[in-house]
């Protein structure tokens, strides 16, 4: 849990306004996940379709290559696995045990 989740009612901006642009990074949505994406580096061709389609920007890329999932924000929607080309199938969704 990040610190923002601990804020009490006296600390919050009035009316639920968001005053600092880009603070969604501090709001962890990973807890919503049922299925977690699992990546197979041997199959991955680094086409980065998963990165393009991820609605939460939860895929890290470094030097033009897949570099990991941001599990603090990944909601487990499975779009990355769906978009991974059928001949590659480098991402599988696995039920997450918590």
């Amino acid at each position: 849990m990040s610190q923002i989740r601990e804020l009490g009612y006296k600390d919050l901006p009035l009316g639920g306004k968001i005053l600092d642009a880009g603070n969604s990074e501090n709001y962890e949505t990973g807890g919503w996940r049922t299925y977690v994406p699992v990546h197979d580096a041997e199959k991955c061709t680094n086409c980065l379709l998963c990165w393009i389609f991820c609605p939460d920007g939860a895929i890290f890329v470094k030097d033009g290559k897949w570099a990991g999932f941001d599990l603090k924000h990944c909601k487990g929607c499975g779009i990355c696995a769906e978009q991974c080309p059928p001949k590659v199938k480098a991402i599988t969704m696995v039920k997450e045990e918590k």
């Binding site: 989740r5 009490g8 009612y9 006296k10 919050l12 009035l14 009316g15 639920g16």
Partner: peptide, 9 residues
């Protein structure tokens, strides 16, 4: 996680 905290004010 926040709705209640936004009502009290």
């Amino acid at each position: 996680d926040f709705y209640f905290e936004h009502k009290k004010p």
